[in-house]
């Protein structure tokens, strides 16, 4: 990967803290230029430590990492010129306004004076903070702080962007708005995005590829679809209207797959062939005259992948599944902060 590339190459990266465990234990991964790479894992898996090493905030104990073709251990100053980062805790000064933060950040990055105000205003507008830009950040809501943090990470037009759990604690609207911006950065501006998250749906929807990290090691890597396909076929879940015909329904289902646990009174089988069997299943119930209260097709989730690879569920899996994403809209709560 040359210095013109926007990609990330990690080889055997290790971070061992003094008298502590190996927070990152020999991970290797590659992120292609312009790709959104989702780094998925539970709390304490090593996601943030990896980001800290890739953003030159923490030196690796062993292994190597190149960001935009530059070695993070030996060319840190150059790496920092081409990356942007919004870390888990939005580090903002409560005494500065949004606009003053932009002024500070553009100057820290050494943007020419004549460009600073223009770039700051442009990004403030882009993240929807124009109305609040002259208010002190101490009065911003969590979502507004996250959006400002993202804008600050973009002032110098980075080629690689690191987002460390950018939507943790955000309401669904703010989350959707941030997702939209991240997608736009990747597709329109060609920015490579390295995104850590513990939300399955976030990784599933945003990421071109996903790396699953657990206990400092990469447990699985690939596109969300490939990972899900790798661990198994979809399952079908039915609930007969008449409980007395449950046995007959079960016999029909077992012709198409093997039984798997289902919720409540429902019956479920993992399909032998795949989704194409669904029509045959419906016809079988129809010809047997069994009326169904519900019939559902369940694709494997990334949580199933995580379960298959690590033997346990990912924290927050349920939360992600229940998070329905409405279309981005202005958040009335966020406009209600103190002036």
């Amino acid at each position: 990967m040359n210095e013109e590339s926007n990609g990330i190459e990690v080889e055997g990266l290790v971070r061992q803290f003094k008298n502590g465990p190996r927070a990152v234990d020999g991970i290797s991964l590659t992120v292609e230029p312009g790709e959104i790479y989702g780094f998925l894992g539970p709390n304490g898996a090593g996601k943030s430590t990896t980001v800290h090493m890739l953003t030159t905030l923490l030196p690796p104990t062993a292994g190597s990492a190149r960001v935009a073709g530059l070695d993070v251990a030996t060319r840190g100053a150059e790496v920092r010129k081409v990356i942007g980062a919004a870390l888990q805790e939005a580090a903002l000064d409560p005494n500065l306004t949004g606009r003053e933060h932009m002024k500070l950040q553009t100057a820290l990055h050494g943007l020419p004076k004549e460009e600073r105000v223009r770039r700051g205003d442009e990004l403030i507008e882009r993240v929807g903070l124009s109305d609040a830009s002259d208010r002190r950040v101490g009065g911003y809501s969590g979502g507004m702080k996250r959006r400002l943090d993202l804008a600050l990470a973009l002032v110098h037009r980075p080629r690689v962007l690191f987002l460390d759990e950018p939507t943790t604690g955000l309401d669904p609207q703010s989350r959707a708005s941030l997702w939209e911006e991240v997608t736009r950065l990747s597709t329109r501006d060609g920015v490579t995005v390295f995104l850590t998250t513990q939300y399955l749906e976030e990784a599933d929807q945003l990421a071109n590829r996903v790396g699953i990290i657990d206990a400092g090691k990469i447990a699985a890597e690939g596109t969300p679809a490939a990972l899900k396909a790798e661990i198994g076929r979809p399952s079908v879940e039915v609930l007969p209207v008449d409980p007395a015909r449950r046995k007959e329904a079960e016999d029909i289902l077992l012709r198409f797959g093997s039984a798997v646990p289902a919720a409540g009174e429902a019956l479920s089988v993992r399909l032998n062939e795949g989704i194409e069997e669904l029509a045959a299943i419906v016809r079988s119930f129809d010809s047997a005259g069994i009326e169904l209260a519900s019939l559902g097709l369940n694709e494997p989730t990334l949580d199933d992948v995580f379960l298959a690879k690590t033997g346990r569920h990912l924290e927050g899996a349920g939360e992600a599944e229940s998070a329905e994403m409405p279309l981005p809209a202005s958040d009335p709560d966020e406009q209600a902060g103190p002036a």
């Binding site: 030159t56 905030l57 150059e78 920092r80 010129k81 580090a91």
Partner: peptide, 9 residues
């Protein structure tokens, strides 16, 4: 940390 990240030197 913000300053450490934003300054090349």
């Amino acid at each position: 940390r913000r300053m450490m990240l934003a300054t090349s030197r």
